[in-house]
């Protein structure tokens, strides 16, 4: 079924999708308009690039520590959370969703993916 379909099968997941690192394409499934998904792709890509840069700097201070290089990130608001790993994003409801299950699926599918941002 693929990672996006698997994520959509989890309870509380509102939408999931992929963006290209070049910023020229995106695809998604779930409860979003295409314009919302385009905005989500722009936001997730921008943050992912920033986190990547910051972790490279962090690595200067803790070379070889388990936080670097970065695989992804997540933010949590009062009702919703966003999880991003590699070029895959997932929007979830905090009450019905489980960040552990979302990230576990992402780890299982993406831990061996190339880290080159192409």
């Amino acid at each position: 079924m693929g990672l996006i379909g698997d994520l959509m099968g989890l309870p509380g997941v509102l939408a999931a999708g992929e963006y290209s690192y070049r910023g020229d394409r995106f695809s998604y499934e779930g409860q979003m308009t295409p314009e919302m998904a385009r905005m989500a792709s722009i936001m997730c890509r921008a943050t992912h690039m920033g986190v990547h840069m910051e972790c490279d700097m962090l690595g200067v201070f803790c070379p070889g520590c388990g936080l670097v290089p970065s695989r992804g990130w997540a933010v949590r608001g009062p009702d919703f959370s966003v999880c991003v790993m590699a070029n895959v994003f997932c929007f979830a409801d905090n009450t019905a969703g489980s960040m552990n299950r979302i990230l576990k699926l992402m780890h299982a599918s993406l831990d061996h993916a190339s880290r080159e941002m192409i």
Partner: peptide
Amino acid sequence: ARFAHDYKRFTQGNADQFSM
């Protein structure tokens, strides 16, 4: 040079979002 390049991309990302 690496920082300036990365920060340039970071700023571009923020400016894109600000415009959006």
